[in-house]
Amino acid sequence: MNSRQTQLQAFERLLDIMDDLREKCPWDKKQTMQSLRHLTIEETYELGDAILDNDLTEIKKELGDVLLHIVFYAKIGSETKDFDIADVCNEICDKLIHRHPHIYSDTVVKDEEEVKQNWEKLKLKEGRSSVLEGVPKSLPALVKASRIQDKVKAVGFDWDEPHQVWEKVQEELQELQVEVAAADQDKMEAEFGDVLFSMINYARFLKINPEDALERTNKKFIKRFQYLESKADELGKPLMDMTLAEMDVFWEEAKRLPKK
């Protein structure tokens, strides 16, 4: 691996390139924090894809894209004299030192759970009125539910055993069925949300990341459906002209394909 000096030189090179781009490139000169926002979100998702695929070469590339965006925002901040990359680095360094008193002070913790609990207590001392204040409003709903549950667990608002959570899932499913029978669309949606929330909670107790689990199923479905499409193409028969029974034959074949 590279030495610390080489790492710092590489970072300085990136800062120099960012200066050049901001000064000389018509596209880079026009960008604002607002115009970069959606691109940053896209780059973050691309990094997430690479991590799910465990593609280390792609992870390295996507980390570079995300780092570029961080440097870009800091460059814009320096132009308005609000902050620069040093301020960004020092801000996170100060926060990490403050929130890790078990490393930088004399606080003693016995496990990861105590670290999380101390983290939330420190954030409340910093002026937050709610442990949920730090959950971004724009997070996708599934990810947001996971973060909400992690946050409240850190202050002790949680079930004790997995079976209790599963019982809650079953209770929510029964309530959903009642509303389905009543055909009340608004109440069905509300109860369906409760089912999803309780399932995400159950996943946490099973130490399963629900986002990763769902994406794994998405990829599996895509692979099988595309196999079905390829077989239909070989037959010269559009999918819409095939019966469900015909399609199911190829679907079952797809399920037996070797995993990559």
Rank of each mutant, 00 (worst) to 15 (best):
D53N: 09
L67G: 06
H102A: 01
Q117M: 06
K207T: 05
R22Q: 11
E120G: 00
E215V: 13
S3K: 02
L15Y: 08
L132Y: 01
K123C: 00
K223D: 11
D84P: 02
M240Y: 13
L176C: 08
C89Y: 09
I200T: 15
L228Y: 05
I92S: 13
D111G: 02
E43F: 02
V135D: 02
V115D: 00
D160G: 06
H69N: 14
E246L: 03
N201S: 07
L239P: 01
L63S: 03
D194P: 02
D49Y: 05
K137G: 03
E113K: 00
L8R: 13
L244C: 07
I85P: 04
M1Q: 09
D49E: 14
M1W: 03
D158R: 11
A50V: 02
Y73A: 05
M188R: 09
K259L: 04
D82A: 04
E114I: 02
V165E: 02
Y202S: 01
A86I: 15
A213N: 13
A232M: 09
A50Q: 02
H102K: 01
K207Y: 02
K24N: 14
E91Y: 06
V71W: 06
P140N: 12
R4Q: 12
L15C: 12
V249S: 01
K231P: 01
K187Q: 14
A183Y: 12
Q170I: 15
C93F: 10
P101M: 01
G193F: 03
A203L: 09
S129C: 08
D241R: 07
P140Q: 05
T44Y: 07
A245V: 14
S35C: 04
A145R: 14
I70D: 03
I97N: 01
T243Q: 12
D19M: 05
M199K: 06
K207S: 04
L228C: 14
K116N: 05
D19R: 11
W159Q: 08
A74P: 02
Q177E: 15
N118Y: 08
D212Y: 13
W166L: 14
E91T: 15
D53Y: 08
V165W: 06
L96G: 00
